[in-house]
Simulated assay, not measured.
Amino acid sequence: MFTVVEAKIEVGRLLPVFDEIVALRADAAELGAALNSGVETGLGGMPEFKAAQARLDELMTLVQHTGAELKGFAPLLVDFPGELDGVPVLWCWLEGDRELGWYHRSDLGFAGRRRLPV
C-alpha cells in the first residue's frame, strides 16, 4: 500500500525506468517487424531483439518489485495500490505523464480515473 505521497515519490524515481521501457518497446517492435518481414533495420537483428526483450523483462520486474502493478504495456500503465478516505484506490500513472496526477477506485478500473484531489 502506498500513500499518495509515497506513490508520487516512487513515480519520480521510476520515470527513467518508464522512459527506458517505452524506448525499448519501440525498438523491440521495429526489430520484430524487421525480422518477420526480412527487411533490414539499423537497429540490428536477432541478438539485439533478444537483448531488448531481456532488458524489458528486467525493467518490468524492477517496477513490480516496488509493489506497483503493471496494468498495460502499450501504452504503459502502472498502478500503485492505496487508500483514499477509507476506500481502496489505485494511484494511476499512464505513459506520457511526467508525474502522478490520477487515481481510480479499485473496483472501477481505468474508466473511473479521476484527477488527484488538491
Rank of each mutant, 00 (worst) to 15 (best):
Q64T: 14
P88F: 01
L90E: 12
V22N: 07
L76T: 05
D57T: 13
A54D: 13
E20Q: 13
E48P: 05
A7R: 01
P88W: 02
P47T: 04
L90P: 03
T61S: 08
E48K: 08
Q53R: 10
P16L: 03
E83H: 01
T3C: 06
A54K: 05
Q53C: 11
F49H: 09
R113L: 05
V4Y: 00
L59P: 01
V78G: 00
R13P: 12
A54N: 10
G12A: 10
V39Y: 00
L84D: 12
L14S: 00
P75D: 09
E30I: 15
R113I: 10
A7Y: 02
V118Q: 15
A34D: 07
A29V: 11
A34Y: 04
W102P: 02
R55K: 10
V87T: 14
E99V: 13
E40H: 04
T3M: 07
A111C: 00
M46D: 11
L15K: 11
H104F: 02
E58Q: 08
E99S: 12
R13V: 11
V39E: 10
R13I: 08
P47Y: 00
G42M: 06
V5H: 09
L77H: 07
D19P: 05
F73K: 06
D107Y: 12
K50H: 05
I21C: 01
Q53W: 08
L43H: 05
G86I: 03
G109C: 09
A74P: 04
P16E: 08
W91C: 14
L70S: 04
A33F: 11
V89I: 15
D79M: 03
L100Y: 02
E95K: 11
L94H: 12
G42R: 10
V39N: 04
W102F: 14
A33R: 14
P81N: 08
G44K: 01
L70P: 11
R98D: 15
D79R: 00
L116G: 10
F49L: 15
L62Y: 06
V22C: 02
T3A: 11
R55H: 06
E69N: 04
G38L: 05
C92E: 06
E58R: 05
L59F: 00
L90I: 01
L77T: 06
V4R: 06
L84R: 14
K8P: 01
V89C: 12
F2S: 13
T3I: 12
F49W: 08
L31M: 06
L15S: 10
L116Y: 03
E10F: 03
L31I: 14
E99Y: 05
L31K: 12
L56N: 07
